[in-house]
Design a protein around this nucleic acid. Structure first.
Length: 272
DNA sequence: AGGTTGACCTGGACGC
DNA sequence: TGCGTCCAGGTCAACC
């Protein structure tokens, strides 16, 4: 499900509700697919840990864990995949199918990781190997660095935007929406973009991501934040999943095609 | 090395 | 009602 704005919304919501609390016990389900560390390692890292802060790094949620003394203990890394959610709930709340982990907190609440398709990931890491995103942060990248990422690349700009080793956090929705705002066709080779086009893309990508964060992300299928609330940015989509509907600027029907195995949407009139 | 494809999963929507 | 098909916001390994 979630790209940068959705992950940011979840991470901020978690931080607000669980920072400073201690994880008293952990339940882990039978399914091993979502676990990128062993169940034993996850339980050992989480049980007894105090959550210092929860934040977004790329598309990952990172919880910094500390001892009761305040010494650092390690990190809990969550990736939501396509359908994952991380909720803070009352223990009496209905237990959804596909719940893979429950962390009982000193506050009396629970953190639950739920993921039907199991493309999400749970991992823990010691302080000696702190988590880092593979690429640059889309909300902070300078224009010079942005240009350098795409210059000389023979792949479509859409695919380059989705490459997490270049920018970490952009997914299918915001790639399509930023290319629309920058008036660039998704199929264009990255290396064919002019300096002016790259400047527009740099500006519009930041703009669309910031607007989406403000509106709590896009709820297209099943995305909800840490309190179970939907986002509102889907109401502002110009092209994503609007195939055949009129462009909001020129009325031309929005086209869809597949690129790199992902559906892509664009206005054939506004985007060149 | 950079680029492309298909595999990993469940479930909802749609057509017949 | 049921069955088949297509689609889905993300990686990641395996190929060229």
């Amino acid at each position: 499900m979630p790209e940068l704005p959705e992950v940011e919304t979840v991470a901020n919501g978690l931080n607000k509700r669980v920072a400073g609390t201690t994880i008293e016990s952990v339940w882990i389900g039978e399914k091993r697919q979502p676990l990128k560390s062993t169940a034993r390692a996850i339980a050992k890292m989480l049980e007894g840990a105090r959550i210092k802060v929860v934040r977004r790094v790329g598309k990952h949620i990172v919880a910094d864990l500390e001892e009761e003394t305040g010494d650092p203990r390690g990190q809990w890394i969550i990736h939501l995949g396509m359908t994952g959610s991380t909720l803070v709930v009352d223990p009496a709340a209905d237990l959804p199918k596909h719940t893979h982990l429950i962390a009982k907190l000193s506050s009396g609440k629970e953190i639950r990781f739920v993921d039907p398709r199991m493309f999400g990931k749970l991992a823990v890491t010691p302080t000696s190997k702190l988590f880092a995103a593979p690429g640059l942060e889309p909300l902070q990248v300078s224009f010079d660095d942005f240009q350098r990422l795409f210059r000389g690349r023979n792949t479509p700009i859409k695919s380059a935007l989705l490459n997490q080793k270049l920018l970490s956090g952009v997914g299918n929705i915001y790639a399509d929406e930023s290319l629309y705002r920058a008036r660039i066709r998704p199929r264009r080779k990255a290396k064919s973009l002019t300096r002016a086009e790259l400047a527009r893309l740099h500006e519009k990508l930041g703009e669309v991501l910031r607007e989406a964060v403000e509106l709590g992300g896009s709820s297209v299928n099943d995305y909800v934040d840490s309190e179970g609330n939907e986002g509102f940015f889907q109401l502002r989509h110009n092209v994503y999943q609007r195939t055949g509907k009129p462009c909001l600027v020129c009325k031309t029907p929005i086209k869809r095609f597949v690129i790199g195995g992902r559906s892509s949407h664009y206005c054939p009139e506004c985007q060149k």
